[in-house]
Simulated scan of single mutants.
Amino acid sequence: MDIQQKLDRFFEEIQKEDFLQMRGLGNEVPYFIFDYKPEYELMVRKSVQYFADKINLNIKVLNLFEMMLDLFEDIGLDGLKQHEEEQGTEQLLDDMRPTLEDETLVDKIGEEAQDTQILFITGIGSVFQLIRTHELLNQLHAKVTNTPVIVFYPGEYTGQGLSLFNRFESNGYYRAFSI
């Protein structure tokens, strides 16, 4: 199946009543991973926004990169660039991690999920090395339980673990459903 067929089938599936009512999940959290080959990133990104706007459902699209930048709006992108130039990339990442790990981002996602039928999370590849998908989903379990969450993942999800860009293995994650 090519990527367009997979996207078409996916957007058809999420409009079904069984999906919206979260039937058949066996008391599991309604978390899903739509994995795809990294080279399809731009196509998937455009399709996600297009269908979120087109489908007659209350869908919220959250881009993790944009959300991360919002957390550092007091410094701004120019401030982050300057910090990296002065201190180096590793130091910048080390300095950003505490803000991202203190659940501020997860709280914000939880707020955004309220009054939403479906939550789409994009931008996983853009925040590589700062935000790990399995850690984010583990933290979200306490905040978002009644809204289907779909992570658009440029890589492979085996049902046992994630491989970003089909290159970087993460710690095992098995609580999401492949969709």
Rank of each mutant, 00 (worst) to 15 (best):
D70F: 10
A176S: 15
F10P: 03
Q21V: 09
G123L: 09
L93T: 06
R132K: 12
E111G: 15
G125N: 13
T133Q: 07
Q117R: 06
D78V: 14
E28T: 05
N27P: 07
F165K: 07
H141F: 07
F120N: 04
D53K: 12
V106E: 07
D70R: 12
F19H: 02
G125E: 12
V151P: 05
R97K: 13
M96R: 11
L162T: 02
Q15C: 14
E101L: 11
L20P: 02
L57C: 07
K143C: 04
E73C: 15
E112F: 03
T104G: 08
Q117W: 03
D53Y: 09
L93S: 07
P30D: 04
E39Q: 08
F65E: 13
L7R: 04
Q87W: 10
N63V: 06
V127Y: 09
D35L: 11
E84Y: 11
F120H: 05
E111F: 06
Y153L: 04
N63T: 08
T104N: 09
I118G: 01
F65D: 10
Q21T: 14
L136V: 05
Y157K: 03
D74R: 07
T145C: 02
V44Y: 05
Y157I: 00
L137T: 02
L69E: 11
D2N: 13
E12C: 09
K46G: 13
L25K: 01
D95T: 10
I131P: 04
N171E: 14
R175L: 05
G172T: 12
L164P: 04
D102S: 14
I55G: 10
M43E: 15
S163L: 08
D74Y: 05
I59P: 01
S170F: 15
V61W: 06
L137Q: 02
E112S: 07
N63C: 06
E12W: 07
A142T: 14
Q160T: 07
N171V: 07
S178W: 01
A113Q: 00
D102E: 08
G159Q: 00
E135D: 15
Y157N: 01
M68E: 09
D94R: 14
Q21H: 08
R175V: 03
I179A: 00
H141K: 07
G88H: 14
P98F: 04
T147R: 01
T104M: 11
L57F: 10
E169P: 11
I118F: 00
T145K: 01
F120K: 04
A176E: 00
E41P: 05
I3D: 08
Q87Y: 10
Y157Q: 03
L136C: 06
L71I: 10
V48H: 13
